[in-house]
Amino acid sequence: MRVFPVYAPKLIVKHARIFLTGVIWVKDLGRLEFEKGRFLLPRKSLPKVKQAILELNELIEAQN
C-alpha cells in the first residue's frame, strides 16, 4: 500500500497504471482500491471521495 500525503491526481494515476491492482491511501480521502488500472467506487463513500475517483478514472481514460 502506497501512502500519498496530498491529493496529486497525476501521480496517483501513474501509480495505478504501473501496478494495475492494489490499494493506496490518500490523506483526506482515505483508502482507494484499483483493479486493472481503474479505481473502484466503494458502495458507500463521501461525495468528495466519489468525485476524486471519477476524476482519476477520467484521467486514466484520457491517457489511453
Rank of each mutant, 00 (worst) to 15 (best):
R43N: 06
Q51C: 10
I60M: 13
R2H: 15
R17Y: 07
K14R: 13
E61D: 12
R31Y: 11
K10I: 12
A8H: 13
R38W: 11
Y7N: 02
R2A: 13
V49F: 06
R43A: 06
A52C: 07
I12V: 04
D28K: 15
Q51R: 14
L46A: 12
I53L: 06
R31F: 08
F34K: 00
V26R: 00
L56S: 00
F4T: 01
G30E: 02
I18C: 10
E33A: 14
F4M: 03
G22T: 02
N64V: 12
E33V: 14
E35L: 11
K10F: 14
L46D: 06
R17G: 09
K48R: 12
L11K: 07
L20N: 10
L54W: 11
L46M: 11
L59V: 09
K27S: 13
L46G: 13
K50H: 08
F39Y: 04
L11P: 08
W25R: 05
F19H: 08
K48S: 07
Y7K: 01
L40H: 06
R31G: 03
K48I: 08
V26Q: 01
L40S: 06
E61R: 09
A62E: 13
Q63D: 14
F34D: 00
I24L: 07
M1I: 15
M1L: 06
F4V: 02
S45K: 09
E55A: 08
R31V: 07
V6D: 05
Q63C: 10
K36T: 15
M1T: 15
L46C: 12
F19L: 08
A8K: 07
R38N: 06
N57R: 03
A52W: 03
V6E: 08
K44M: 07
P47A: 14
R2Q: 15
D28V: 05
D28C: 14
G30L: 02
L59I: 09
N57I: 02
K27G: 14
N57L: 02
M1Y: 01
M1E: 15
E61N: 14
K14A: 14
V23E: 15
F19A: 14
L20E: 13
L54V: 08
F34H: 03
V3G: 06
A8N: 08
A8V: 11
G30I: 01
E33L: 12
K36M: 12
R38Y: 09
G22N: 02
W25E: 14
P9T: 04
F34A: 00
E55G: 05
P5Y: 15
P42Y: 09
L32K: 00
I18R: 11
V49H: 05
E61C: 07
R43M: 05
P5M: 15
V23D: 05
A16H: 00
K36F: 11
N57G: 01
L56G: 02
V49L: 13
P9D: 02
K48E: 06
R17A: 12
E61L: 09
M1C: 15
Y7A: 01
K36S: 12
L54M: 10
A52E: 02
L46F: 12
R38M: 11
L46P: 13
P9Q: 04
V49Y: 07
G22L: 03
F34S: 00
S45T: 12
I12M: 05
L11W: 08
P47M: 13
A62M: 12
A16N: 00
E33K: 15
A16G: 02
R17D: 05
P5G: 09
Q51P: 03
H15L: 04
K50P: 03
I53K: 00
P9E: 04
K48N: 06
Q51N: 12
F39N: 02
N64T: 10
L20T: 11
R2L: 15
R43E: 06
Q63L: 11
F34P: 00
E55C: 06
P42H: 11
K10D: 10
Q63G: 10
G30N: 02
W25V: 05
K48G: 06
F4I: 03
P9H: 02
G30W: 02
Q51H: 12
N57M: 03
V13G: 04
Y7H: 02
I18E: 14
V23W: 09
I60W: 13
E35K: 14
R31T: 05
H15I: 04
I53C: 06
E35W: 12
G22K: 02
V6W: 14
E55V: 07
E35C: 13
E61K: 09
P47F: 08
N57D: 02
K44W: 10
L41P: 07
K14T: 10
K10G: 14
A8E: 08
I24Y: 02
I24P: 00
L59F: 06
W25T: 04
